[in-house]
């Protein structure tokens, strides 16, 4: 095993020289997690909005369930998706196991409850403020939900960022359903796990560095969204 200092130097070198393998891994990570985030938003935002504005029997139980699903362990999600996609599973004929698509499915399942639960909270708060005005305007349920999603847009962007942050940093689910296959399903987190165990610290450190910068970037983006919203009194 190399000396730790050498490893950091080599890692920086990999990043700064634009190493092809490194960037292939980073790009796949981004593609998988951004797609999963988009899917989670398409499913989770309307679900959160409907949970926020409707009153039905069992609503409290539904809220508890969605909040509990926020804490799903990634390896459990990976295992469940694996069981469905494996050759013997109900969806085995699709041949998706060990493909980026399988990883997108697993991450979507992992973060849809996060997007749904957080957006439910955001939209319910806003609805508390708007509901009497909306009832006075005799809006339909659909108009109410659309208006709330649009008016919560800044907060919902930060919700999406939180979902993306969780997706891009998780390792258990993509490891199980992606298999960490070189040039095919290797993403940052699985590569870090593998390279570390193999003793190839420079690549692991370089990927770790990219991941940290990404996390910083996500938080900076969330912060600037919040500041923009506050500037227009839209927060």
């Amino acid at each position: 095993m190399q000396d730790f200092g050498d490893a950091i130097g080599l890692a920086l070198n990999l990043v700064l020289s634009g190493d092809a393998d490194l960037f292939e891994i980073v790009l796949l990570s981004l593609r998988v997690s951004l797609t999963a985030t988009a899917i989670a938003c398409v499913l989770g935002l309307p679900l959160g909005a409907v949970l926020a504005v409707s009153r039905f029997r069992g609503r409290q139980a539904a809220l508890v369930l969605v909040n509990a699903l926020m804490g799903l362990p990634p390896v459990v999600v990976g295992l469940i998706v694996y069981l469905h996609l494996s050759r013997a599973g109900p969806l085995g004929f699709l041949g998706l196991l060990y493909t980026p698509t399988a990883m997108i499915i697993a991450q979507s399942i992992l973060i849809t409850p996060i997007v749904a639960a957080l957006s439910r909270q955001v939209i319910e708060d806003l609805h508390g403020e708007y509901s009497e005005q909306f009832r006075s305007l005799a809006l339909s349920r659909r108009q109410v939900v659309q208006a709330l999603i649009w008016d919560a847009r800044y907060s919902l962007v930060t919700v999406a960022l939180a979902g993306f942050g969780r997706a891009v940093a998780e390792v258990g689910a993509v490891m199980i359903v992606g298999g960490n296959i070189d040039h095919l399903t290797r993403v940052m987190t699985t590569a870090i796990a593998l390279e570390t165990s193999k003793g190839d610290l420079p690549l692991a450190l370089a990927l770790g560095l990219v991941l940290m910068v990404l996390a910083l970037g996500i938080n900076a983006a969330a912060q600037s969204v919040r500041l923009t919203a506050a500037r227009f009194a839209y927060a």
Partner: peptide, 28 residues
């Protein structure tokens, strides 16, 4: 109720521009 309108003691305005606040109701 649909044929009535109420201006509340504390106005509740949407997080949009002035024009968009009106457009919203006109479109609805």
């Amino acid at each position: 109720a649909r044929r009535q309108a109420l201006v509340f003691q504390k106005p509740v305005l949407l997080r949009r521009s002035v024009a968009a606040n009106l457009d919203f109701v006109l479109r609805a």
